[in-house]
Design a protein around this nucleic acid. Structure first.
Lengths: 199, 199
DNA sequence: CTATTATACTAATATAATTAGTTTTGTTCC
DNA sequence: GGAACAAAACTAATTATATTAGTATAATAG
């Protein structure tokens, strides 16, 4: 039994992510995390800058992983297929990482305007979404409005689902399919209007 | 300067609600709340059952106020006008009460299945939403799917907006108008399908 | 006016975050 | 292989908060 636990920043952050995904963000404490890692609480300060620093790392990890998932989901797709894949991937990410997903909501720009790494990771997600709506024929302000709609729908449904907010025993997949269809129809309508205005 | 601060449960909960709306739910502590009320921390235990009890009261207050707002918004309306009013009222509530709204997400049934007061307040909101989609011509499972869509859209947009999640300087009201129009179009489509299946 | 209750208090305990300073382990360089 | 260095863990101590127990005082009912 060596005195070295063999920790480093990634392993500490990964353990914290597992903790918040399992027991919720309210359950995160350095004490508890240290116990799970078989180490004394102050030892964690060798790897993360206290609780605020750990939360920053969780936010970065969450945004990066979400960006990876969304990017992978839409590769080679366009139009309605891309929108459907994007929404499904967002929902799947939140379902699989309910704790981590919580940290992806508040933009870095508000609390840490100098955190280029986080801001860049967030920008990548917006870029993916913009590309998806572009493949639908939307550009400019229309594209931004459309991205906001996509994000609202995906975030709203997935967050409520993860929080256990849909109590009635009726197929959630079907609810999400219908919501996705509604979004695709709405974006198609928008795209038609936009093309018409180009004359 | 009397020794009595004149507190009671409603005033303590109201002060806590103001605190979380102003500074966020993470800023809520009995210490801080007691300071704002000009009292020592343990005195709060005469009015609420510690921090967990206070959070329960905030959840109840939030769900009741949200129910009031939604009910008032849709009185005398039906169809698309009712849906629009419902979504607008939800968004306005979250904007005006970002902290309190946080406590309305997780259903009481999960943590406190015996808390009849909270569960009833939550049921009232569902009833209002069901009535709105019924006025649109939706019933049964279709109504439940529609209510989930409404809630996802409203919750998603309003939560992201309140969290400052929409960074790009483009009119948020216009984004919400388009999202609302999309929902109304989608529900209208659903209603048409449902009527057709009745033959 | 007295008895009762409610409200606020002080004192004490427990848990968690954080800082400071120390020890031990692993690595690098000669 | 041994010395020097850096990294990672530790112990000890401080601070902040929640909570409980027990006490005193103000408001109120009879």
């Amino acid at each position: 039994m060596s005195r070295r636990a063999g920790l480093d920043k990634p392993s500490v952050v990964a353990a914290a992510a597992a903790l918040v995904n399992r027991d919720g963000v309210a359950a995160l404490s350095l004490k508890r995390l240290a116990e799970e890692l078989g180490v004394q609480t102050p030892s964690l300060y060798n790897h993360v800058a206290g609780l605020p620093g750990l939360e920053r790392e969780l936010a970065l990890l969450g945004v990066q992983r979400l960006g990876d998932a969304l990017t992978a989901a839409v590769i080679g797709k366009s139009g309605a297929a891309a929108v459907t894949a994007l929404l499904d991937a967002y929902r799947a990410f939140v379902t699989a990482n309910p704790g981590l997903a919580t940290y992806t909501v508040r933009p870095a720009a508000l609390d840490a305007p100098d955190d280029a790494e986080r801001i860049q990771a967030e920008a990548r997600i917006v870029q993916v979404a913009v590309a998806v709506v572009a493949s639908f024929g939307l550009a400019g302000d229309d594209a931004i409005h459309a991205v906001r709609a996509l994000r609202s729908v995906a975030h709203g449904f997935a967050t409520l689902e993860a929080a256990g907010g849909f109590g009635i025993p009726l197929d959630l997949d079907e609810s999400f399919r219908r919501l996705t269809a509604m979004v695709n129809a709405g974006l198609g309508q928008q795209a038609k209007i936009q093309m018409g205005s180009g004359d």
